[in-house]
């Protein structure tokens, strides 16, 4: 099993800054309002259509679209359908505030590029307070 370490800048103020799970990687940006079904956590109208963000470590370039995405993230978290952690090339305020309120570890400005170096299915452990990401490659 190959293991790689990525380093970035994480959200430091969480009570539980460490989380792990199976990666779901999108090379395209995500608008939580519209692209994620708030009742099921399943991605829609997006190249990752049909995949669920629930319990995954969601890796994506940045958040786009609606500024109400924050409430979609909080609603998902209250239903137990939110991602366990999020990794972005560049964080955006809409995703960040959702992560702060829902207590989801979030890391951005990661080296090497997380969208390129993490693949869906890899097992990813995120320490948001240190900005450290451990990736166990699936193969």
């Amino acid at each position: 099993m190959t293991k790689i370490i990525l380093k970035g800048f994480g959200l430091k103020t969480l009570r539980s800054p460490v989380a792990e799970g199976e990666a779901l990687v999108s090379e395209y940006p995500i608008s939580f309002l519209g692209n994620v079904n708030p009742e099921t956590g399943v991605i829609q109208n997006h190249p990752l259509e049909g995949e669920s963000v629930a319990g995954r470590v969601l890796v994506f370039p940045t958040g786009v679209g609606s500024t109400v995405g924050t409430y979609v993230i909080i609603n998902l978290a209250e239903k137990g359908l939110a991602p366990r952690a999020m990794i972005q090339r560049r964080a955006d305020t809409v995703t960040l505030i959702g992560a702060v309120v829902a207590g989801i570890p979030l890391v951005h400005r990661v080296i090497p590029d997380p969208v390129e170096s993490i693949k869906s299915g890899d097992w990813v452990k995120v320490d948001s307070s240190k900005g450290i990401i451990e990736v166990e490659k699936k193969k």
């Binding site: 103020t13 609606s66 109400v68 409430y71 979609v72």
Partner: peptide, 27 residues
Amino acid sequence: SLGDFFEAERLIPIQSAHISGVSYKTG
């Protein structure tokens, strides 16, 4: 949380705000 994360130097005063998150359907 926002300022610390994005390494803002300080807070500045704003003239006004416009708030989203109103529809019960989306929020």
